[in-house]
Design a protein around this nucleic acid. Structure first.
Length: 403
RNA sequence: GUGGCCGUAGCUCAGCCUGGUAGAGCACCUGGUUGUGGUCCAGGAUGUCGCGGGUUCAAGUCCCGUCGGUCACCCCA
């Protein structure tokens, strides 16, 4: 009998999982520096929340949700993204005024898995609610950029666009729609279907996008206030020394975005899925899910893809491996003492030979081996450079001074 | 939903083209050596060759089906 994890889900074990730990620690550090406290929200939400928030025409909602009816007859869905849930939590809290939150955890989309695309994937992100200024956009974009740079995503590129607002976007969408209708025969079937439902996404198509070189551009149709917002965001990024590339084909897959939209792309990633993160402003989302008007901006980063692009592995960190010449019971007691002193120590519980214990110590990458020779005997401290002996209770102070 | 590639020891894989009694490396265990251990030497255990059917005197190897994995399209983090 054997089980495999469900399709598109993975076990992440050491040493790879140690890189995840490091990446998540760095994430917490950056989120704290920018003033984003942790928010914990459910992994399941009402199906309605995503249908109304993310949008009924999106691929995510129409074919990728894990939806089921619970035993009370309610339709619930494993979250396919984070923003809708965080905005719901913000509205439920009743908070007035600017509000920041950082989140991380697993998300679920039913798709055919491939490199960088799993059915259960891990995202970290932030949302900044009840803010309208371009400074908020710039801060959010910068945070993601600093983190991804710090963690070492190679050939990181930030792309940015403006999608307009409820005033200017409908005008543009009409114009784009008639442009696409004229070209309909040249388009793939899936693009043709989108002309009525969501023509913006045709521009994002890999097959058709390049053919539409003379398409109408949102950038040319922005109303005055959207233009000013967009120009200011770009100016602020320049002042922050965050390099960006303007991309008027960038529309993103979720319906709630308005004005600023952006993506972080790892150009060195050889997998086809090279967007390591993305986000934007969503001034209409809170109202779309039945709340008051509360504009906001945020992003999500795919940790699976980040790990794919940085690819380094970190060994399990250990200060010392304890080798016992008198069996595991003694070692357990001695290790406990050292651990309570703050040292990272491991040892063999299975009573294996001293030779096997030494072998394990070296394979675990322990910089120091402590040889336990029995109660009352000093501990033999062995390093690459030499050896020393200390009573057990002085071993931790030896670490503080000698190293 | 569509297509390419791959399923052989705990892990990574060779063997398949040109059918003839299952292999390597790593990992694991024991002994020796080293005598601060990671090196080196000797030995040891392990396989329904994914599953089902067909061809054949004979199938890990050829054919068909099926399941699983993987990569790509589509789309997205």
């Amino acid at each position: 009998m054997s089980f495999q994890p469900p399709k598109g889900t993975d076990d992440v074990l050491a040493p790879e999982s140690e890189s995840w730990r490091a990446a998540l620690r760095q994430w917490e550090s950056w989120a704290e520096r920018y003033g984003y406290p942790l928010v914990l929200i459910p992994v399941i939400e009402s199906t309605d929340l995503f249908e109304r928030g993310v949008g009924n025409t999106t691929e995510v909602v129409t074919k990728q949700m894990y939806t089921f009816t619970d035993q009370g007859g309610r339709s619930v869905t494993l979250r396919p993204e984070g923003t809708a849930g965080v905005v719901r939590a913000f509205l439920n809290s009743g908070h007035q005024g600017p509000w920041k939150a950082a989140y991380s955890g697993p998300f679920f989309r039913y798709e055919r898995p491939q490199a960088g695309r799993r059915r259960q994937f891990f995202q970290v992100g932030v949302e900044y609610m009840d803010v309208e200024s371009p400074e908020a956009d710039a801060e959010v974009i910068e945070l993601g950029f600093r983190y991804l740079t710090d963690i070492g995503v190679p050939e990181l590129e930030l792309t940015i666009n403006s999608l307009g607002d409820s005033e200017c976007r409908p005008v543009f969408v009409d114009e784009l729609r008639s442009y696409l209708r004229a070209k309909e025969s040249e388009l793939t079937d899936s693009s043709a279907e989108l002309i009525d439902k969501n023509p913006l996404r045709v521009l994002d198509s890999k097959a058709d996008g390049p053919k539409l070189v003379d398409h109408p551009r949102m950038i040319d149709h922005l109303c005055d206030s959207c233009t000013e917002h967009h120009e200011t965001v770009k100016r602020l990024l320049a002042e922050l020394e965050v390099p960006y590339v303007e991309d008027d084909g960038l529309v993103r897959g979720l319906d709630y975005y308005t004005r600023t939209a952006f993506e972080y792309v790892g150009r060195a990633l050889d997998a086809a899925q090279n967007a390591v993160g993305g986000g934007g402003r969503y001034d209409g989302l809170a109202e779309a899910i039945g709340g008051r008007r509360a504009p906001g901006v945020g992003f999500a980063l795919g940790v699976d893809r980040i790990m794919l692009s940085v690819g380094q592995e970190i060994d399990t960190p250990l200060d010392a491996y304890l080798v016992s010449e008198t069996g595991p019971a003694d070692a357990l007691i001695a290790a406990s003492s050292l651990r309570r002193d703050g040292l990272r120590v491991d040892f063999d519980t299975e009573g294996r030979s001293v030779k096997a214990q030494f072998r394990t110590a070296s394979r675990a990458g322990a910089p120091v081996v402590l040889v336990w020779r029995g109660d009352g005997q000093p501990v033999d401290i062995q390093t690459r450079d030499g050896r020393a002996e200390r009573p057990l209770e002085e071993v931790s102070s030896w670490f503080r001074t000698a190293r």
